[in-house]
Simulated scan of single mutants.
Amino acid sequence: MVSNTAKQAQEVLSADFQTLVKDTEKLLAHTASLAGEQADELRAQINESLLRARETLKVTGEAAKVRSQEAVATAEDYVQTKPWQAIGIAAGVGFLVGLLATRH
């Protein structure tokens, strides 16, 4: 459940970032009618920033995917090798959450 929530959050963040990149590309296209050396320089800088942002998003997404898969695998291994300790930890966390939820 936690991994699904994290995955959904990652997908939403990725979609939002891609939307931002697309909107910036549209803005860049609309400013194409602007003339002058400064406008050309600004468009080149924006385009370069977009390329870096895309690459960063790709690398970050891949790294997050690998880390989340490793975390899930580690948690599954721990639960399979030490089921009673996992149950105890889950019960303790549930108890603490219950205490915090009942406090006013």
Rank of each mutant, 00 (worst) to 15 (best):
residue 57 L to I: 01
residue 37 E to H: 04
residue 12 V to E: 06
residue 75 A to S: 06
residue 94 G to Y: 02
residue 36 G to A: 07
residue 36 G to C: 06
residue 58 K to M: 10
residue 18 Q to R: 15
residue 28 L to S: 07
residue 10 Q to H: 09
residue 46 I to R: 04
residue 37 E to A: 11
residue 9 A to W: 04
residue 95 F to I: 07
residue 7 K to L: 03
residue 80 Q to W: 02
residue 75 A to F: 05
residue 58 K to C: 02
residue 87 I to G: 04
residue 41 E to R: 11
residue 17 F to I: 06
residue 61 G to E: 03
residue 48 E to Q: 15
residue 102 T to Y: 06
residue 79 V to H: 03
residue 37 E to R: 07
residue 63 A to W: 02
residue 40 D to W: 05
residue 1 M to A: 14
residue 76 E to C: 02
residue 49 S to M: 09
residue 96 L to G: 04
residue 102 T to D: 07
residue 56 T to Q: 12
residue 4 N to S: 13
residue 100 L to Y: 10
residue 44 A to I: 03
residue 74 T to Q: 14
residue 48 E to T: 15
residue 76 E to M: 05
residue 5 T to V: 10
residue 43 R to S: 04
residue 17 F to C: 02
residue 11 E to K: 14
residue 102 T to W: 08
residue 21 V to H: 00
residue 99 L to N: 05
residue 96 L to P: 00
residue 23 D to L: 11
residue 51 L to A: 13
residue 86 A to S: 14
residue 3 S to L: 13
residue 14 S to I: 03
residue 36 G to P: 01
residue 101 A to W: 05
residue 53 A to W: 01
residue 42 L to W: 08
residue 47 N to H: 13
residue 76 E to G: 04
residue 23 D to Y: 05
residue 13 L to V: 01
residue 96 L to I: 08
residue 76 E to Q: 14
residue 96 L to H: 04
residue 23 D to G: 08
residue 33 S to K: 15
residue 74 T to Y: 04
residue 64 A to Q: 10
residue 2 V to G: 06
residue 94 G to F: 03
residue 57 L to K: 03
residue 19 T to N: 11
residue 56 T to A: 14
residue 30 H to M: 14
residue 94 G to Q: 02
residue 26 K to F: 06
residue 79 V to N: 05
residue 48 E to H: 14
residue 74 T to F: 10
residue 66 V to I: 12
residue 102 T to I: 09
residue 85 Q to Y: 08
residue 82 K to E: 12
residue 70 E to L: 15
residue 25 E to A: 11
residue 25 E to L: 10
residue 16 D to V: 04
residue 45 Q to I: 08
residue 93 V to N: 04
residue 65 K to D: 11
residue 68 S to I: 02
residue 85 Q to L: 15
residue 71 A to L: 15
residue 55 E to F: 08
residue 88 G to R: 00
residue 68 S to C: 04
residue 39 A to S: 11
residue 28 L to I: 01
residue 27 L to G: 13
residue 34 L to E: 13
residue 90 A to S: 12
residue 12 V to Q: 11
residue 103 R to Q: 08
residue 89 I to V: 11
residue 92 G to V: 03
residue 73 A to R: 12
residue 53 A to Q: 09
residue 72 V to C: 00
residue 44 A to D: 14
residue 42 L to N: 06
residue 101 A to T: 08
residue 71 A to R: 09
residue 75 A to C: 05
residue 47 N to W: 04
residue 68 S to F: 00
residue 40 D to P: 00
residue 55 E to P: 03
residue 41 E to P: 01
residue 60 T to Q: 08
residue 53 A to N: 07
residue 89 I to K: 02
residue 11 E to V: 09
residue 2 V to C: 09
residue 25 E to K: 14
residue 15 A to I: 05
residue 103 R to K: 12
residue 35 A to N: 10
residue 82 K to L: 14
residue 74 T to K: 13
residue 81 T to D: 08
residue 7 K to R: 12
residue 60 T to N: 06
residue 13 L to G: 07
residue 9 A to R: 09
residue 26 K to T: 00
residue 45 Q to K: 10
residue 96 L to Y: 06
residue 95 F to S: 13
residue 52 R to N: 12
residue 102 T to V: 11
residue 92 G to Q: 06
